[in-house]
């Protein structure tokens, strides 16, 4: 009842505004309700059946397939990444081993060389010291010989000088004794 009254009021306003003969405001006109509702029911039910039976399951399938595909691709990528990391780790390890080995070899070589050099050095030093000792001995001998000679020469000279000075004859032993005494002082 209330609705009819509003219809009537609105329709009067409309008719005033347009100056046409009085008619019901169309969106509220009850005489058109039946055909609209019948077709609303038909179309809505049709659409609902099409959507729920055909369209939505299809879209859902496509979306799920894509989700699965993306998930499996991500898994695959993860797996590949892990493999890459393993390869990198293996490479790093090999590199470290190689480096250690190289260091070892270098150290060995260095030690070996150092040993040889040391041995050589010792040998040379030994030779040198031997030669030095020999040389020193020779010098000492020469010195001793020379000194011995000096005594002799000094003796001879002294004998000659004494002979010339005093015209006497001195025994060799006396002269040598005197020379030795003089040299020693």
């Amino acid at each position: 009842m209330a609705e009819n009254k509003t219809n009537h009021q609105m329709s009067t306003e409309v008719s005033h505004g347009n100056g046409t003969h009085e008619k019901i405001f169309p969106p509220l006109d009850p005489s058109t309700f039946a055909p609209q509702l019948v077709w609303l029911a038909i179309t809505f039910v049709t659409l609902y059946i099409i959507m729920s039976r055909v369209a939505l399951p299809r879209i859902s399938t496509v979306l799920e397939e894509r989700r699965d595909r993306i998930a499996s691709d991500l898994d695959e990528a993860e797996k590949l990444k892990q493999q890459t990391e393993e390869a990198i780790a293996a490479y790093e390890e090999a590199l470290t081993q190689a480096r250690n080995k190289a260091i070892g070899i270098a150290q060995e070589t260095r030690d070996a060389l150092a040993g040889e050099v040391e041995a050589e050095k010792l040998e040379v030093e030994k030779q040198i010291s031997e030669k030095t000792v020999e040389a020193e001995k020779r010098i000492q001998d020469a010195k001793t010989a020379a000194l011995a000679h000096v005594n002799e020469v000094a003796g001879d000279v002294a004998e000659s000088i004494v002979q010339e000075l005093i015209g006497g004859k001195l025994t060799k032993a006396e002269v040598n004794q005197a020379v030795s005494k003089a040299l020693a002082s």
């Binding site: 005489s31 058109t32 039946a34 055909p35 609209q36 019948v38 077709w39 179309t43």
Partner: peptide, 10 residues
């Protein structure tokens, strides 16, 4: 008996 006319709305 129901008016089920095909209208511009339908």
């Amino acid at each position: 008996g129901i008016d089920a006319s095909f209208t511009n709305s339908s």
